[in-house]
């Protein structure tokens, strides 16, 4: 198998890697916000559940969560394992990353000076208006570097989907490496991930720059 064939074959898997990446971000970013808000709830039960959620998902390996989400329903309830592995994979990634995002949001929200809330309250903004108009835009600006970190990690973590037999780029690379007794697919995989992350860093750098029109 020549190099071009290897690259093309792995590029097929790249589509699935991208699917994990974008769908995970699509679901985990808002889900993380929901968890962060629940964690800040005044109701002890609600905040306790959110706290436990974050603690469990951050305290156990993503690989374990992937296996639990994919095969757990079968072992526990006899529910068929999904044929489209993208579904359990994205669920596992999204709930895992939501926990990390929730903590980032929380730290961002807690770093906001109380004066911003008070100024908004005196001006008569509702709680919802205060959150979306005053607090959230500033929180996003503050947490963007941490978010970038997580996104870069996510690119690399997508390779973990191979543990539940999802045929993403790295799994295909391993298959080729086996059948060819060759190390080249791993180098190709490394280059793919590196370029992917270079693009992510570039885009996030642009976003950060666009948001730094004011000083904190």
């Amino acid at each position: 198998m020549d190099l071009l064939t290897i690259i093309l074959k792995m590029a097929e898997g790249l589509e699935k890697t991208c699917a994990i990446f974008f769908l995970t971000l699509l679901f985990s970013i808002p889900l993380g916000m929901v968890v962060a808000l629940l964690r800040g709830s005044k109701l002890k039960i609600v905040s306790g559940i959110a706290r436990a959620y974050i603690s469990v998902l951050r305290g156990t390996p993503l690989m374990l969560q992937l296996i639990a989400v994919t095969y757990g329903p079968y072992y526990l309830f006899g529910i068929s394992v999904s044929r489209n592995k993208l579904i359990p994979v994205v669920i596992a990634f999204a709930i895992n990353y939501a926990a990390y995002f929730a903590e980032i949001y929380r730290s961002g929200i807690e770093s906001m000076p109380v004066g911003q809330y008070e100024a908004a309250e005196v001006l008569g903004y509702t709680k919802v208006q205060t959150f979306f108009k005053i607090i959230l835009p500033q929180v996003i600006r503050r947490i963007l570097p941490s978010i970038t970190n997580e996104i870069v990690t996510l690119v690399k973590d997508t390779s973990m989907a191979f543990t539940v037999s999802y045929q993403e780029m790295f799994t295909i690379g391993k298959q080729i490496a086996n059948s060819q007794t060759s190390f080249v697919p791993f180098i190709v995989a490394g280059v793919f991930y590196y370029v992917f992350n270079a693009i992510v860093s570039f885009v996030m750098g642009r976003v950060e720059k666009a948001m730094s029109y004011y000083k904190i």
Binding site: Y71, Y74, S80, R83, K85, T163, S165, Q167, Q175
Partner: peptide, 21 residues
Amino acid sequence: GQVVTADSFLKCFTELAGNAV
């Protein structure tokens, strides 16, 4: 239809038992 490569036999058999393959 699809060749699913798993990283252990246990997973292959689980896929079969769970009707994923």
